[in-house]
């Protein structure tokens, strides 16, 4: 008998607190699998955000630190500079990274800090009850945009991967999703590539993962995946946004 697939050792045995169908579980699993495959479970250091994934420190079986809201890139900067040979990553949602922590992520990318950021974009604030996020789509209804977001009042949604890709310190930016098996495989490859570039000391690496929030979108998990495909992917196109060749 051969085991084809089992839970990765990169995750602890703690039960996830996420809602049914939440993509956080899939994305954390991919990160954990990559760390296990690259033999980095003993050395990796994760910095967790504030938001739904605040408890990620209980789920990754690596050393973790819980940063103040939005400040994970600043904390990761300190860790990576003290431990330059160890893999360091932040795991942040859109409220954490694209709103309160915009300054930290932009400056970490600008400085070319050699850690990896996994950015979960589900176009809404999940933990606090479904408020409008900077990434909320035009027309999307949330508890603070009950008639749907309008560009006149709130501007256009922010595309973080494209924005950070303009900075020289950012060597790799890719947007992926985990809607189905082909996309899950692509997302895992992207995460692995980001860690490889980090370990090559190339610079700041950024993976944006489109995610769902069935609870706050008011949908079933299956409807939410379809809504993400139909509405988010056209505005947040998938693929490599930037890949800087390593200088020889």
């Amino acid at each position: 008998m051969a085991v084809v697939y089992e839970k990765t050792k990169g995750l602890t045995d703690v039960e996830l607190h996420y809602c049914p169908g939440c993509n956080h579980g899939i994305i954390q699993k991919l990160v954990a699998e990559v760390l296990e495959e690259m033999g980095m479970l003993d050395t990796a250091i994760a910095v967790c955000p504030v938001g739904c994934s605040v408890f990620a420190y209980k789920y990754f079986s690596v050393d973790t630190l819980q940063a103040a809201h939005g400040r994970a890139p600043a904390v990761a900067t300190g860790i990576k500079r003290c431990r330059p040979t160890q893999p360091v990553f932040t795991y942040q949602g859109d409220g954490d990274l694209a709103s309160i922590g915009t300054g930290e992520i932009v400056h970490a990318a600008m400085r070319g800090e050699k850690f990896t950021t996994i950015f979960i974009n589900n176009a809404i604030y999940g933990m606090t009850g479904g408020q409008m996020a900077p990434t909320t789509l035009i027309g999307q209804k949330t508890t603070t945009s009950q008639g749907g977001r309008t560009a006149e009042q709130a501007g256009m949604p922010i595309r973080m991967a494209e924005m950070l890709a303009t900075l020289d310190g950012c060597v790799y930016a890719e947007r992926v999703c985990v809607a189905d098996i082909p996309n899950i495989n692509k997302a895992k490859r992207a995460i692995k590539k980001a860690f490889e570039k980090q370990m090559n000391n190339e610079g700041f690496t950024f993976i944006e993962v489109l995610s769902t929030c069935p609870t706050n979108w008011g949908m079933t998990p299956i409807q939410a995946v379809q809504w993400m495909k139909d509405n988010m992917i056209p505005y947040y196109p998938l693929g490599v946004i930037k890949e800087k060749a390593m200088e020889v």
């Binding site: 697939y5 839970k7 996830l16 899939i26």
Partner: peptide, 20 residues
């Protein structure tokens, strides 16, 4: 067919797939 697609997408990682 033991493709493990169900296990890969399971957010809670509760599925184990084996083949003989």
């Amino acid at each position: 067919i033991a493709c493990a697609s169900c296990a890969k997408i399971c957010p809670d990682s509760i599925i184990t797939v084996e083949k003989f």
